[in-house]
C-alpha cells in the first residue's frame, strides 16, 4: 500500500447582510468535507487511517467577520501501516478579525503500533474568537497505545498564547503520576478571544484563579484565553469532564469583552 498525501481546505468569506458563505470547500480523500449547515462543515473520513507514512493537511481560513463550525462524523483511528515514517496530520487555522471558529472533531484513537504526529497551528487576529477541542485516546479497548507527538501552537496577533507538546507512548511519560497518572485519555479545550482577556493592570501580573473539578481544570492563560485540561479513564468520562470545564470557562467570559 502506498502512502497517501492529501490537502483539504475550508475558506469562508463575508456575504451580504453579515452572513458567512463557504468560499472554498476542497476535499482531498481521505480528508472529505461536507457542508452540513449554513456555517458548518463535517469532516467525513473516507478510507482507513491515517496509516504510517500518510501526510494529511487541513487548512481552515475564517475570513474577518465570518463564523465557521468544523466537526467530524466519527473518531479518527490512527493505524500502524508498514512505512518507517510516522503518519502526519497538520491543521493550519487562521481566524480573522471579529471572526469565530468552533473546531471540535471526534477523538483521535491511537491504535497499537501506530506512530503519529499531530500538528496544530492556530493563528488568531486580535479580536477573533475560538473554541478548539482535542481528545486523544490511548489505544482501543484493552490495547496499549502506539506513539504520538501532538504539538499545539496558538498565537494572537502574532503573540504566543499557548504552545504545548503532548507525548504518548513514551516510556518516561506513560503511567507517570506527574503526566497522565492512570488515565487512558487526555483532552483539552481552548476558549480564546477578547472575552477572556486578562484585566489590564500595568506592571502587575495577578493570576486569575483556575476552576478545578474531578480530573479537570479550567486554566486561565496569561493571554486572552482559558484552557480546559482533562484526563479520563475512557472517552466518555473524558468528554464529560471536558464539558464541565468548558462550562466553567464559558462562564468566566466577560460579557462584551
Amino acid at each position: 500500500m502506498t502512502a497517501v498525501t492529501a490537502r483539504a481546505l475550508i475558506r469562508t468569506e463575508a456575504a451580504t447582510g453579515g452572513r458567512t458563505r463557504l468560499e472554498t470547500l476542497r476535499s482531498d480523500p481521505p480528508l472529505t468535507l461536507r457542508q452540513t449547515g449554513p456555517r458548518r462543515v463535517h469532516l467525513v473520513s473516507t478510507g482507513a487511517g491515517p496509516l504510517r507514512g500518510d501526510h494529511l493537511d487541513l487548512g481552515v481560513d475564517v475570513a474577518p467577520g465570518t463564523s465557521l463550525e468544523v466537526r467530524s462524523v466519527g473518531a479518527t483511528l490512527v493505524l500502524p501501516g508498514l512505512a518507517d515514517t510516522p503518519s502526519v496530520m497538520v491543521v493550519r487555522a487562521r481566524v480573522g478579525a471579529g471572526a469565530t471558529l468552533h473546531f471540535s472533531p471526534e477523538p483521535t484513537v491511537l491504535a497499537a503500533g501506530c506512530a503519529h504526529r499531530l500538528v496544530v497551528r492556530l493563528s488568531l487576529a486580535e479580536d477573533a474568537t475560538v473554541f478548539w477541542r482535542e481528545e486523544i485516546v490511548f489505544g482501543r479497548h484493552g490495547e496499549r497505545p502506539g506513539r504520538c507527538h501532538a504539538r499545539f501552537d496558538a498565537t494572537v496577533a502574532g503573540r504566543p498564547l499557548l504552545r504545548q507538546d503532548l507525548l504518548i507512548g513514551e516510556e518516561a511519560l506513560d503511567g507517570s503520576p506527574a503526566v497522565y497518572g492512570d488515565a487512558r485519555c487526555v483532552g483539552s479545550a481552548l476558549l480564546a478571544g477578547p472575552a477572556w482577556a486578562p484585566p489590564a493592570v500595568p506592571d502587575v501580573k495577578r493570576e486569575r484563579r483556575a476552576v478545578l473539578g474531578d480530573g479537570w481544570a479550567a486554566l486561565p492563560l496569561a493571554g486572552p484565553g482559558v484552557q480546559v485540561c482533562a484526563l479520563g479513564a475512557d472517552a466518555v468520562q473524558l468528554r464529560e469532564r471536558l464539558r464541565h470545564g468548558e462550562q466553567a470557562a464559558a462562564s468566566a467570559a466577560r460579557p462584551g469583552g
Partner: peptide, 21 residues
C-alpha cells in the same frame, strides 16, 4: 523561540491547582 519545546504534563497542572486548596 516559537519552536522551543512545550512538553506539558496535565497531571502536574491539576496537582498545582489542587495544591492551592
Amino acid at each position: 523561540w516559537h519552536a522551543l519545546p512545550g512538553h506539558s504534563a496535565p497531571a502536574l497542572d491539576l496537582l498545582a491547582e489542587g495544591h492551592l486548596t
